[in-house]
Design a protein around this nucleic acid. Sequence first.
RNA 1: CGGGGCGUAGCUCAGCCUGGUUAGAGCGCCGCGUUUGGGACGCGGAGGUUCGCCGGUUCGAAUCCGGCCGCCCCGACCA
Length: 609
Amino acid sequence: MDRAMTVSITAGNRQGSGADLIGRGGAQRDAAGGLGPRLRLDLPVTRLSAYFLPTVKEAPADAEAVSHRLMVRAGLVRQLGAGMWSFLPAGWRVHRRVEQIVREEIDRIGGQELLLPLLQPAELWRRSGRYGIDELFKLEDRRGADLVLAMTHEEALTSHVANEVRSYRDLPLILYHFQLKERDEPRPRAGVLRTREFVMKDSYSFDRDLEGLDASYEKHVSAYDAIFDRCGLEWYRVESDVGAMGGFGAHEYMAPCAAGENEVALSSAGYAANVEVASAEPRPVADLPEPLAAPEPVDTPGATTVEQVAGMLEVPHGALVKAMPTITESGEAVLVLLRGDHRLNEIKLHNALGEPARPARVAEVAERFGSVPGFIGPVGARTRVLADEALRGLRGLVSGAGEADRHLRGVEPGRDFDAEWVDVRTVEAGDRCPAGAEIRLEPAIEVGNIFKLGTRYSEPLGATYLDESGTEHPVWMGSYGIGPARIMAAAVEQYADERGISWPRSIAPFDVELVRLGGADEEAARVADDLYGELRDLGLDVAYDDREIRPGEKFADAELLGCPLRVTIGRRGVEAGEAELQVRRGRESANVALAGAAEEVLERWRRLP
RNA sequence: CGGGGCGUAGCUCAGCCUGGUUAGAGCGCCGCGUUUGGGACGCGGAGGUUCGCCGGUUCGAAUCCGGCCGCCCCGACCA
């Protein structure tokens, strides 16, 4: 009863402030030259005695990723099924704060927020040619009409633009929404990192021509840079594969962390690319054998692997020519050559060939390549030959002789065989970026992507406009995604320590966790109640731990939840006229005078990362 | 889709191989008391449709066999 009254009075006092999205806190944030306004999420009930924040000591046994474990333990999220996650109140606060940062930055570049349906007619997807995608959830209504659950919203929005946009005067446009995406993922994993249903901010730009698209793209680059900065993440914008859909350019925003499913190639000179597309100068081969005047056969009985051949001939792996017989999707036989110590990058090969390819089967090696698996080589090859750039200019190489149990040494590209030079190898740590700096590889989460679509959707869906001369043109489009839940998970991964989460200030569920020690009937409780009100009046969102539990539990929960600042009020401090402040990141603490403590807390909060 | 693993109390797990009485532990939860600046202690208590589901073997199944479902991890695949 007492509690209920407190809650309702609090709500009454704060009436109207819940809708104050920016408020004084935001103005102060700007004045501090910090991260700009963050979403004010003042709610009547932020007393933990009445808040749904189920923390647990032990993470589910099957949780491996740090973010997965901590987000569950801290009471932010709960799993409903494979790849299906619920956000609990504190977790949803973080999500909303991320959303608000995204919203402000997309608005700033002229984006207009709207909302498109998740449930859509299959017909649209048939027209765009995406109905066949395996990840697309397909269903039927009671009348038997085919429907889909959207995995992105190009079709829906392009179809509206096709209906409404007629003239060059109607362009350009940037439209966006926050909406669920549904994907029948073959393998959901790592908590909130890869799920079958998730909220995405997706924006779409519509321009008259490629120049317009380039401008919209650049606007998104600036907005995205600002978003990830404001969210407090360590991030890289990397070149990415334009994918099978074609396209005119694409970048991914990657947040490095252990649970990342992608790998990015980075250098101190600023090079950043997804390994899927990264290019770099390989390390030279040490101790290449002496060149020979002509290739010379050598017996290599049973040696079919790089390892075996290099060992038998006592040459470095890099002295070998790795020849990979492949068959393209259209059925062409192509021999792909790599340096022996390198690995093929299938995406780069796909891009070089203009179509997917697969390894040749044993029978095909004989029939199409006229050779023997394990002993195939480029000298005398009767198919098209692609050679990786890393082989260019090397001499004294060893390659398969094209017959069983035999290799050739002294092989030289150009002299002994001709090839088309391509870049199809996977970069590795220690390579050199174009500026000469050493490449390192890091796992990372993709938290956003930007993509120049061109007319991939406007053409099939009929989104056209008339220019000044009355000529019809397809609209040029770009698409731009951000996953707020992945930003959350990335922040958890990047800043967690052995005690729990440590949120960046801008996206923390609460700005401050106020810990009251001792019972509700003690002096400390009255002091804490007062401070709670003062902090809220100053514009801070406060989680007030007024629960009747032991101090150890409160501290452990506070450090698990990871609010940037913790304020402790206990009998000891009250008697000394002090409150204890602890900065979550680094866990440094200091005592401040109770008089003026609220202002001091605000001051310190402003200076946090 | 291939490989591996798991499914017993809210959570973490034991029991299963070697079938046999009322299916256990720790944590958590509820009550009382002592405590109260880092997950405290004591006493009492609730909680499992009987062990994911279905079927089979058996006098008897959490335990053995088969099928199915769910979940996790690795790989493939992929926003």
